[in-house]
Design a protein around this nucleic acid. Structure first.
Length: 421
RNA sequence: GUGGGUGUAGCUCAGCUGGCAGAGCGCUAGGUUGUGGUCCUGGAUGUCGAGGGUUCGAGCCCCUUCACUCACCCCA
């Protein structure tokens, strides 16, 4: 048997209604907030991710699905969406038409991590990006939009974590302070952190190894080192969030594993998914557009973990199924031929109808009709057909009547419509 | 990459100190000589994850290996 690849999964018909509901609700909210959909390729040049996400991040170092594509060089299955959206913003010259662009995209991402609960190697994200707006009000509005979506989907038990990473003007001072503080406790750090210390000291802050946590417990808070501009920005975000009634907590350990973030970063967390607590995350990346060769334009974005959201909602949502309206039980070749014709006509008219396609007893077919949750059963046999009559049974009331085969599909349609009202 | 857990019927799992592979659900046929749900009776389905070893005898013990899963790391 050929099985699927580790970390990949099938989304089966039973679960699909939830996916569709979330997608519909997300698209509605994006529409309400003025975002337009963009669809992008799944494959991009490896360089795009190396430059945007950062060479020393875990994603780029060891989690990308990459392969050589002849003369085109190394290509990569996208591990996240932001880089591609930025690439498109620049390449399609969107900024020329209007620097302000509010975009969203939904689709699969790929990271070669060890799978576990709430984490897959192919996972889906609902991703939104806003270009050309530097205002802190956009940061707050984005978080507000996210929380509105979750509340429309009736997802509870979420918390908003907030932090600011400063900007190229103020971050170096903080890094220095952090470094000198950690230097003193170098021995306590885990192997990973000792290595990270040189390349990316900020990351030591969100290490979960107990000794490291202890070591950085008294680490300076980056928010104490923000320059005037960043500090004002952060205050404005917090103020507007409060004004909108969005509760949040400041987490100075929140750093996030992508290099491009500046100023506001945030994460929406849940306790319903085991160790995987992030349902959505994002932040501002004012330097990225320029870094990738575009004009200097501010930007901010977030991604929702589609799979994780589904996993949470599946814990209390029952999968819904479109009920079957008519099931045909036919006996004999002629009745079977007629039945197939009627089913086709009814389906064409938007009525869900099925029939038996094999030779089985009426009893077993009634069982099947029951299993399919059919509202009505039509029983047609050769004898009845000769008289132009079939039996119609209402499965709920058990009432049976004889109906004429002339205009049967129209008759059934009107009966079903009346039944609904 | 590292650590723990689990692999037995389509699904969920039981299987004692080693002794004829089981249950529930599902599937299927019948009880009702065309009419469902409840009930009753019968039936089918197994490389016991794979390979090797110990033993008269292994689902069970030993070794190897693979898969799944949870966790670390990191993130959605």
């Amino acid at each position: 048997m050929i099985e699927l690849i580790k970390g990949f999964k099938d989304i089966l018909p039973e679960g699909i209604s939830l996916w569709q509901r979330i997608e519909t609700e997300a698209k509605t909210i994006f529409d309400d907030f003025g975002y337009r959909e963009i669809r992008l390729p799944i494959l991009e040049k490896a360089e795009l991710f190396a430059r945007s996400i950062g060479d020393t991040t875990d994603i780029v170092e060891k989690e990308m699905y990459s392969f050589e594509d002849g003369k085109r060089g190394l290509v990569t299955l996208r591990p996240e969406a932001t880089a591609s959206v930025v690439r498109s913003y620049i390449q399609q010259r969107m900024y020329a038409a209007d620097p302000i662009q509010k975009l969203f995209t939904i689709g699969p991402m790929f990271r070669k991590e060890r799978p576990q609960k709430g984490r897959y190697r192919q996972f889906y994200q609902i991703d939104a990006e806003v270009f050309g707006i530097a205002s802190p009000y956009m940061d707050a509005q984005m978080i507000f939009m996210l929380m509105t979506l979750f509340s429309r989907l009736k997802v509870a038990g979420l918390s908003v974590l907030l932090n600011s990473l400063g900007c190229p003007a103020c971050r170096p001072a903080f890094k220095e302070a952090l470094l000198s503080m950690i230097e003193a406790k170098k021995e306590a750090l885990c192997e990973n952190c000792s290595r990270r210390l040189l390349k990316n000291p900020l990351r030591v802050l969100d290490c979960k190894v107990p000794t490291c946590r202890e070591a950085v417990k008294e680490a300076p808070a980056i928010t104490d080192y923000l320059c005037k501009g960043c500090d004002d920005h952060f205050s404005a975000v917090k103020e507007m969030l409060s004004g909108l009634g969005v509760g949040y907590e400041i987490d100075k350990g929140l750093v996030r594993g992508l290099d491009y973030y500046t100023r506001t970063i945030f994460e929406i967390q849940t306790s319903a998914l085991g160790a995987q607590n992030a349902v959505a995350g994002g932040g501002r990346y004012d330097g990225l557009v320029e870094l990738l060769g575009g004009p200097s334009q501010p930007a901010i974005g977030f991604a929702i973990g589609f799979d994780r959201l589904c996993d949470i909602m599946a814990q209390y949502e029952k999968p819904s199924q479109k009920p079957l309206q008519v099931f045909f039980i036919t006996e004999g070749a002629e009745a079977g031929k007629q039945g197939a014709n009627w089913v086709s006509r009814l389906n064409q008219a938007g009525v869900t109808a099925e029939m038996d396609y094999g030779e089985r007893s009426v009893k077993s077919l009634m069982k099947r009709a029951d299993k399919l949750d059919a509202a009505f059963v039509v029983i047609a046999d050769g004898e009845g057909l000769e008289k132009g009559q079939v039996i119609l049974r209402n499965m709920k009331t058990k009432e049976q009547s004889s109906i004429s085969t002339t205009g049967i599909t129209e008759q059934l349609q009107s009966i079903i419509v009346n039944q609904r009202s």
